[in-house]
Nucleic acid binder design. Structure first.
Lengths: 355, 355
DNA sequence: CGCCATGTTGCATACGGATGCAAATTAGTT
DNA sequence: AACTAATTTGCATCCGTATGCAACATGGCG
């Protein structure tokens, strides 16, 4: 039986374990009999330092658990390795997935994500002023529709900013977005192929670029194909309940073969409402399609035809832009459109491919 | 036709607008003929400075758009106003909502959230080492089940750490969690009241504290009530598809009146599978309940009885702990249990209350 | 009017690491 | 061996703000 002594009070150096100050490069240097610069260089890839010295320092640093203080480093390099991520809506399941992939990709190249969760009502400038005070290296704005272009320009002044899924031209803001018009047209074509002729569009937030592009693309293509636009619901928000409401309005008129909802959450609400409130069968009585391809769209219950946003590619492109010459971004805003992919599922009568 | 001149090179003051260095306190001070300390004090609430001087400085600062450099401030105060938020799963809809509320509450008291998105496979210590280098003021860990207690202790050494929905005793880690056992018992009682006698449990990630507590609470209460535990499925994950699979296993045996799924996502998968794969009616043939009360649980299609986690209260408590005397947290880890609320809906035959 | 309490202000330095520059060491060349 | 080139190293200083301390100003009071 092992003797289990009480933790002796004098054994521990007066509770230092709790919050002792972390070691500094100078201390470490003194212990090794080298200069503080040497320590700094040991931790700086490509710095001018002999391989054996570097090794000795790093080895000792690992032993005593020294890590360079990132804050001090930020100050002297005036580079934070922090990317500001501006979000205003994490309710739409599309965004958490995007944010997750984004922050992981950034982490992989040594960048951390500082979250700015913008709330509608309150003072936006105040919330964003932290973006400037914290000296983030770049800003990624994820579909924050409540921010005006000028507010964003102000908040990101002097550092590269990339909007995801929102396009503002004639500013210093770069944009990476899904080709919404292309997707909407593809869905129109798909409706046509599946035999629908009288189709409806349900808008999300009407004034957003995503909505407008999807709407225009769809409506235009519909006309080209000679199909009838039997209804068009203007939207207030991208939500499940808005989708339900819109679906019921459309169903009441009984003149629609297929509904294109501006995104998947709307469409899913629509499907539920059609099936449950008006006993309408999807796809037998009416087709439904959405946009995004959130995980739920693939669930057997919904089996929603949709246009998949190229999330991985969006993330890749954004990270590359940030990793690359960011000063180029400052000089000239770039707008990049990425192609998505039609995912035909049962909600439009398509036979889902084998998994 | 509008004449569209080339952007004149000499017209712009040599591109300064692009990335000019922000002004410093010293510069501002010199322009006003005061000392740099005065500027610093003007921006420090409660600092020793005359009201009129402060006003003059702030006014001028606003005019020339000066803002104190947060990085420099962090260095000298050794306080970052940054809270590290460790997450490993943003797929479960419960977490984005939590993160959103959390980060907003923190923002409201001047704290920003630095996201640490932990990935399973890779080197966890390396991912977490940034927590230490960045000198975050505190760490909030959101149900990161893939991190061991010792890894967490190491990563957060010297700064307060709060786990949400995960309880580890005998460490320096504080915990704020829903009273899972209470919730599970409440659901058992509810099943009983609704007339179920043969009940099943579907686990989430088996080894997590949330799962174990819900499981124990449920199973124990079942026994007390004299009900039969007709099945118990061990789980690999908290996912929709795992829920479907488990539900089918249970339905195959035809000996169960009610299923308690370890969380809502599982339950929702379960409901879909029961209805679609085996033509089982919910609630007519079988009851289903979940845990969390994610938004989808309230959707008419699912109408899922569940136990609502007190998200707002969790957030409030966590923020209070951080806002308050954090050194107290370092001295003695606190474990707080918060009560949730049974939300009886139609999936257990309860009539949903009017909204 | 003189003295002390209170309130303001500036000076100097600290925070911890990065880096230009010069000194010192090593390698390479003839 | 002598000398130049290349590599290492340390010194000193800078990054921009916060703050202890001393100097100074103001006000109250006897």
């Amino acid at each position: 039986m092992r003797k289990q002594g009480l933790p002796s009070l004098q054994g521990e150096p007066s509770g230092e374990a709790l919050s002792r100050k972390p070691m500094t490069a100078r201390e470490l240097a003194r212990m090794l009999g080298v200069s503080q610069s040497a320590v700094s260089r040991a931790f700086t890839p490509g710095a001018s330092i002999a391989a054996d010295l570097r090794e000795r320092i790093l080895k000792y640093a690992a032993e005593v658990d020294y890590q360079p203080n990132a804050i001090a480093s930020m100050l002297s390099k005036s580079r934070t390795n922090i990317i500001g991520i501006v979000v205003s809506d994490m309710q739409n399941p599309f965004y958490p997935g995007l944010i997750e992939k984004l922050s992981r990709s950034l982490q992989r190249i040594g960048l951390q994500s500082l979250l700015f969760n913008i709330t509608k009502g309150s003072n936006l400038e105040e919330q964003l002023s932290a973006l400037r005070r914290y000296n983030v290296d770049a800003v990624i704005v994820i579909s924050a529709t409540i921010l005006s272009g000028s507010t964003l320009s102000w908040a990101t002044e002097g550092r590269p900013a990339i909007l995801i899924n929102r396009v503002i031209e004639d500013t210093n803001l770069s944009c990476v977005a899904c080709n919404n018009a292309e997707g909407a047209r593809a869905l129109a074509d798909h409706f046509y192929q599946q035999g629908a002729r009288r189709v409806a569009y349900v808008a999300g937030l009407s004034h957003t670029t995503t909505n407008r592009e999807r709407q225009n693309g769809f409506v235009t293509r519909i006309a080209e194909l000679g199909m009838t636009l039997s209804a068009q619901i203007e939207g207030q928000e991208y939500s499940y309940y808005a989708g339900r409401k819109a679906a019921l309005e459309i169903a009441a008129k009984k003149s629609t073969d297929a509904i294109f909802f501006a995104n998947d959450i709307l469409a899913i609400g629509g499907i539920d409402a059609l099936r449950e409130e008006v006993g309408c069968r999807v796809p037998d009585d009416i087709f439904v399609a959405g946009f995004d391809d959130i995980p739920m769209a693939g669930w057997p219950h919904y089996n929603l035809t949709t246009f998949r946003q190229p999330v991985d590619e969006i993330v890749r492109v954004v990270v590359e832009m940030i990793e690359g010459d960011t000063s180029a971004l400052l000089r000239a805003a770039t707008i990049i459109r990425l192609s998505g992919e039609l995912v035909a599922r049962r909600s439009t009568g398509a036979e889902p491919k084998a998994q």
